[in-house]
């Protein structure tokens, strides 16, 4: 039986939704065990991991695993017996799994949109070149590591829950050459982080720096606020909001681009979204080439009307 170790992402002690998506994917590949780095999870958190199929919750109580080599050692200690390791693809986890693969010989595919077992080997699916191509990659090595993007698997509880038994794993962290001098937490805006949000409403140059309407629409749709490189370069909004190949890559069910022309770098970070809506004054803006619903017009006219109409129909 295939053992699938899932590195759980948690915030303030709570399991994040992408972790539940990763567990759901892991169930389709074999028997999931959860790996939890940090202080032991609450009984509720462990129970939730069980509901999504985790037979065990392996806890590696490392106080500080910010460095890739440390985190890789911790994950490695808890996934020694695993045939497959699933993580949520981020800049940080990609470094962790690279380190782990260097010591275990594992084959790695990151930024995956899904995975399945074919003839006893893991095959991972990716969209590349700004989501214009689909690629299927077989992992030939005995151990497979998959980095999966948020919002690519629908999280569903297991038909029969796993026990979610907490097991403590000890590890001797390696000496690292690097030293974390300081860590300043980024103040998280309320609601879901950009990469995980089911809806993203982004504003670009066309906002002129006024994010009031963009934020209001995002709130109404239960989404997060994004931005283009232009807008973050102008200092209108912080870098954490930047959607694009060098910022955050998002794959929400709905992406609304407001006053964003759709430069190739921006499109590369959002083109795999489910439904794409664009509002732009310029009828020739490249964003319209990929928009399911495009509006040539001013966002200052269009968004208030959209908000009013949605509220009206919800009220009805």
């Amino acid at each position: 039986m295939t053992t699938v170790a899932v590195l759980i992402d948690h915030r303030d002690g709570a399991v994040t939704r992408p972790s539940l998506e990763a567990l759901t994917l892991a169930r389709s590949l074999g028997t999931p065990v959860a790996v939890w780095l940090g202080e032991s999870p609450s009984a509720d958190a462990a129970a939730q991991l069980g509901e999504y199929g985790a037979t065990e919750v392996r806890v590696v109580d490392v106080a500080d695993a910010r460095l890739a080599a440390s985190a890789a050692a911790a994950l490695g200690a808890a996934s020694d017996d695993a045939d497959v390791i699933v993580v949520i693809s981020t800049f940080v986890t990609k470094e962790i799994v690279t380190r782990l693969a260097m010591t275990t010989g594992a084959g790695v595919v990151v930024d995956a949109a899904g995975a399945e077992i074919v003839d006893g080997k893991v095959e991972a699916l990716q969209t590349v070149f700004a989501a214009t191509w689909n690629v299927r990659t077989r992992i030939d090595a005995d151990k497979a590591i998959i980095g999966v993007r948020p919002n690519t698997t629908q999280a569903t509880p297991a038909d029969s829950a796993g026990a979610g038994t907490i097991i403590d794993v000890s590890v001797d962290l390696p000496e690292t050459r690097e030293r974390v001098v300081s860590v300043a937490p980024v103040e998280q805006s309320d609601g879901t982080p950009l990469a995980e949000a089911p809806v993203v409403v982004s504003g670009g140059r066309g906002t002129g720096g006024d994010y009031t309407l963009v934020s209001e629409l995002a709130d109404l749709l239960g989404g997060a606020v994004g931005a283009s490189r232009d807008a973050t370069d102008e200092g209108w909004i912080s870098h954490e909001h930047m959607v694009g190949q060098t910022g955050t890559t998002v794959t929400p069910a709905l992406y609304v681009a407001c006053g964003i022309s759709g430069a190739v770098h921006h499109r590369g970070g959002m083109q795999a979204s489910g439904t794409i809506v664009a509002i732009n004054m310029d009828p020739d803006a490249p964003i319209f080439e990929i928009a399911d619903f495009g509006v040539v017009g001013s966002l200052f006219d269009v968004i208030p009307q959209t908000i009013e109409r949605i509220k009206e129909r919800r009220g009805a």
């Binding site: 191509w133 299927r136 992992i139 090595a141 928009a291 040539v296 017009g297």
Partner: peptide, 21 residues
């Protein structure tokens, strides 16, 4: 350690709508 077994261009999005306000 990995082999690309299939690569194909994705079809363009179908039924796109563009309206002028």
């Amino acid at each position: 350690r990995t082999t690309v077994v299939d690569a194909s261009e994705r079809p363009p999005r179908a039924d796109r709508v563009k309206v002028t306000d």
